[in-house]
C-alpha cells in the first residue's frame, strides 16, 4: 500500500525553492544593466567586464587560492596523522586530551578561534618577534589548524569502517606495522584523503571570520574583499562574481558526479563480467 507522500513532496518543493530562488535571483541580476542592484534595467554583461578588469579581485583570488592550496595540503597530512592516531593507536599518554583537541575546533565558534589566534600571534610577535607581520603566513597557519580537524574526522570514520583483516593479512605476510600503514592502509583510505583535502580546500577558500582576525595590512583574501564590499550594500559586480563561483562549483560538481557514476557503472559491469566468466 504505497501512497504518494503528498505533504512531504510539497515541503520538499518549497525547501528546494527556498534553497535556489535566492541564488537564481542573484544570477539573473548579475546581467542587470542598472547600477541599482535590485532594480531591473535591461540585459548587460558589463559587470562581468568590470569584474575582469578589477585588479583587486584578481589579486585577492590568487592569494585565496595560494592559501587554500598550501593549507589544504598541510592540513591533509596532519589530519591524516591525527585520524590514524585516533583509529589505530588505542593507548598512548594524553589520548583523551588529543581526542578533545581534534573535536573542539569543529564546534568552537569561529569568532573565538579567530580572536584566540590573533591574541596568540600578537603576543608571540611581542615575545620572539615572529610573526613580524600578519598576512599570508598567519592566515595559512590558522586555516591549517581548523581545517585539519575536518580531515581528521573524514579519515577517522573511513578507517573505522575499513576491514581490519586486510591489515592483519599484511602483517601475517610479514609486514611491519609501519609498512602495513604505507602499503595497505594509506592506499585504502586514499579516497578519504582526497575528499578531506577537498573539504579543507573549500573551507579555507570560504573562510571569512577567522581570516578577518588573523590577517594583516595588504593581505586581502577573496572572501575578505567580498565582505568589505558587501558591508556597504548590494553591488552588481558581486552578483557577477557570485554567478561565476556558482557556475564553477556547479560544473565541478556535475563533472565529479558524472565521473563517479561512470566509474561505478564500470565497476558494476566488470563485476558482472567476472561473475559470468567464473561461473
Amino acid at each position: 500500500m504505497t501512497r504518494r507522500p503528498v505533504f512531504l513532496i510539497t515541503v520538499m518543493c518549497f525547501g528546494f525553492a527556498f534553497f535556489y530562488i535566492p541564488i537564481l535571483s542573484m544570477i539573473v541580476y548579475s546581467f542587470n544593466e542598472s547600477r541599482l542592484a535590485t532594480v531591473w534595467g535591461g540585459f548587460s554583461t558589463k559587470w562581468y567586464v568590470s569584474l575582469f578588469s578589477n585588479r583587486q579581485v584578481g589579486a585577492a583570488l590568487w592569494l585565496s587560492l595560494k592559501i587554500a592550496l598550501v593549507s589544504a595540503s598541510i592540513a591533509t597530512i596532519l589530519g591524516a596523522m591525527a585520524g590514524i592516531t585516533l583509529a589505530r593507536f588505542r593507548k598512548f599518554r594524553g589520548r583523551t586530551l588529543f581526542s578533545g583537541m581534534v573535536t573542539a575546533p569543529l564546534i568552537m565558534p569561529e569568532v573565538i578561534t579567530g580572536i584566540s589566534l590573533l591574541i596568540f600571534f600578537t603576543l608571540l610577535a611581542n615575545w620572539i618577534g615572529w610573526p613580524g607581520q600578519r598576512g599570508f603566513t598567519t592566515i595559512t597557519l590558522a586555516h591549517i589548524t581548523f581545517s585539519m580537524v575536518f580531515v581528521t574526522t573524514v579519515v577517522h570514520s573511513r578507517m573505522t569502517q575499513m576491514d581490519r583483516s586486510i591489515e592483519e593479512a599484511a602483517m601475517d605476510l610479514g609486514s611491519r606495522p609501519w609498512q602495513v600503514l604505507r602499503d595497505v592502509t594509506l592506499p585504502v583510505i586514499s579516497p578519504a584523503l582526497l575528499s578531506g583535502w577537498l573539504l579543507a580546500f573549500t573551507i579555507s577558500l570560504d573562510d571569512v571570520v577567522i581570516s578577518s582576525f588573523v590577517t594583516g595590512p595588504g593581505a586581502t583574501t577573496l572572501p575578505l574583499l567580498i565582505w568589505s564590499k558587501v558591508k556597504l550594500g548590494v553591488t552588481p559586480d558581486i552578483n557577477a562574481l557570485a554567478t561565476l563561483i556558482v557556475a564553477l562549483v556547479g560544473i565541478c560538481v556535475i563533472l565529479a558526479g558524472w565521473l563517479m557514476s561512470r566509474a561505478e557503472r564500470r565497476r558494476l559491469a566488470e563485476q558482472r563480467l567476472a561473475y559470468r566468466t567464473n561461473g
Binding site: I23, S25, L241, A242
Partner: peptide
C-alpha cells in the same frame, strides 16, 4: 560548496 558569504549576500539582494 558555494561561498557562505555569497549565500548571505543573495538574501540581501532579495
Amino acid at each position: 560548496w558555494t561561498s557562505f558569504l555569497l549565500r548571505v549576500y543573495a538574501w540581501m539582494g532579495l
